[in-house]
Amino acid sequence: MSRISAAFSSFFSLLFSGVLPESVATQFGYMKMKPAAAPPPETPKIKITDGALQMLQTLQRDARLVDFLMEDIAGYADDQVGAAVRSVHADAKASLARHVTLAPVIDGVEGTNHKLDGGKAPDPNRIKLIGNVPASGKAPGGTLRHRGWQATSVNLPPIGKQDVSIIAPAEIEIE
């Protein structure tokens, strides 16, 4: 290869593709150079909403909850709705139990009195005061109206390469 043609081909190759042409590299003994390190594998970016979509996906797959919620049920008789709901309920409950461990926030009997620390306002995450709430937001106790729910553990599989925005794929049956 002549010096001029080598220079030109190197110039344009470097300008447009950022590498030496193979012929030049071989001629000048650059082939032993390690190829540029591969870019680090792309880690899937997990968005904050992905977990929510995954849960919807799961409840649809296991219990068809989205089908149920999205259907207009106004026109159906109660026993028709009832029959479907029993099935959806049982499946959704089983699915939920597999993925999330739920426990009451206050493990007491609803309708009975429950003591609170009157010295300070309760954690608003855990306890909501309702009714005649004193201005200070502190109360020594009251009637437990709802025990609340908390997730004590969540067991969802890691999100891989699936498209979480697809809650349920369309189904096509081949006859």
């Binding site: 089908d67 999205m70 259907e71 028709q80 709705v81 029959a83 479907a84 099935s87 959806v88």
Partner: peptide, 13 residues
């Protein structure tokens, strides 16, 4: 109870 196929779940039950 056999749920309806497709997205018409209650209607097809």
């Amino acid at each position: 109870t056999i749920l309806g196929r497709g997205s018409g779940l209650v209607g097809g039950t």
